[in-house]
């Protein structure tokens, strides 16, 4: 008797779960991709769901996975840390737009060194990651750091072991500032590192840097802040040594020329401007130009429009940099022009 009751309860529960799932499906937006913006997307989604009841199901499986999923049309939108080129977008029929920005920061572990005390030039940073500068007391390091006590310690490079948008932004920067890096390594989400050890994820790199004396790595700004890591000042395109702060990321974004970037293909590394942080990057959303379901397409765009309009504070709380108003206007203009469902503009 009790057994039969158990079965009945189970069946009832399953039925309940199924109907609940069906009801939710109409109010759920599905996306997949980049891990870097996941915390802020999750925060936005929670706030949006509380206000409108529309839920976001975002799988942070990595940019590569996001591109694969949108190609396979298993998700409503994809997300990628590295922008797709105009040609790549056109091949699949996608539109992309920048959603959020962040910075990549060189972090190091030299006993007794305070955050921001050490200065690095672009060439020096590249040469360390190339394995050309192997000691912290190398004359070339001393030259830009007069008065700073530099130990006789080997430089141990720490890089990402997994493919990552962070690596893409970082190598893109080194590629721009160092001809040697350009010929020997190049830009990609995973590269053939000349030297060093690999940590999995930002947290892996952060852990290795904190562990190994004399190490030099790179992490997302938020990880540098949260782990109170020792970062290096970096010389920007204008020749100034700057600290990684929300302001210096904003400065880099403000000087970016989004208007003349076809398909929003713009990389924010090494931007001009006296206060610009040189290793800044944006994270992108990928969406089909030709939509089959008007209601669904509108729901997705409404969510992102709401985030642009209401999400700045939440983004800043999590140490991200929101997109400037001028860029948001450009994005919404491109929505109006390019996204169609059954020949009708989705966004008006």
């Amino acid at each position: 008797m009790t057994r039969r009751l158990g079965w009945l309860t189970l069946i009832a529960l399953v039925a309940l779960a199924l109907t609940a799932g069906m009801a939710a499906a109409q109010k759920t937006l599905n996306g997949a991709g980049a891990t870097f913006p996941y915390p802020v997307y999750a925060r936005w989604a929670a706030a949006y769901a509380a206000q409108t009841g529309v839920k976001l199901n975002y799988q942070s499986i990595g940019s590569g996975g996001g591109i694969a999923q949108i190609k396979a049309k298993t998700v409503d939108f994809g997300a990628s840390d590295a922008p797709l080129t105009k040609q790549e977008l056109d091949e699949i029929g996608l539109i992309q737009w920048p959603m959020i920005m962040g910075g990549v920061v060189p972090v190091l572990n030299i006993p007794g060194m305070a955050p921001g005390q050490l200065k690095l030039t672009p060439t020096l940073l590249a040469d360390m990651f190339l394995g050309e500068v192997t000691k912290w007391n190398d004359p070339r390091v001393a030259e830009v750091n007069p008065g700073v006590k530099l130990p006789d310690l080997a430089v141990t490079v720490v890089h990402r072991a997994d493919g990552s948008g962070t690596t893409w932004i970082f190598t893109n920067y080194l590629d721009k500032v160092s001809p040697a890096w350009h010929t020997r390594v190049g830009t990609a989400k995973a590269v053939s590192w000349p030297v060093g050890v690999g940590g999995k994820g930002n947290e892996g790199v952060a852990a290795y840097v904190q562990r190994i004396k004399g190490s030099l790595g790179y992490v997302e700004y938020a990880y540098c802040l949260q782990n109170k890591m020792t970062y290096a000042k970096l010389q920007n395109a204008a020749g100034n040594f700057v600290d990684p702060t929300s302001e210096s990321f904003q400065a880099a974004a403000a000087n970016a020329d989004w208007k003349d970037a076809p398909g929003f293909y713009l990389v924010l590394t090494n931007q001009p401007g006296a206060d610009s942080w040189p290793i800044t990057g944006a994270s992108f959303i990928l969406f089909y130009k030709s939509q089959t379901n008007m209601v669904k397409a509108k729901a997705v765009l409404s969510f992102w429009a709401w985030c642009y309009a209401n999400g700045q504070k939440m983004a800043e709380d999590l140490d991200y940099v929101p997109m400037p108003k001028a860029v948001v206007d450009l994005v919404e203009t491109s929505w109006r022009a390019d996204i169609l469902a059954g020949g009708q503009a989705v966004w008006k």
């Binding site: 990595g62 940019s63 590569g64 072991a161 997994d162 989400k189 995973a190 690999g198 999995k200």
Partner: peptide
Amino acid sequence: ASGNTISSTLANEFTEAS
């Protein structure tokens, strides 16, 4: 020295291999 294994490489690089 650091190295890698077949499964560690798969775990690290599968997600972003586009």
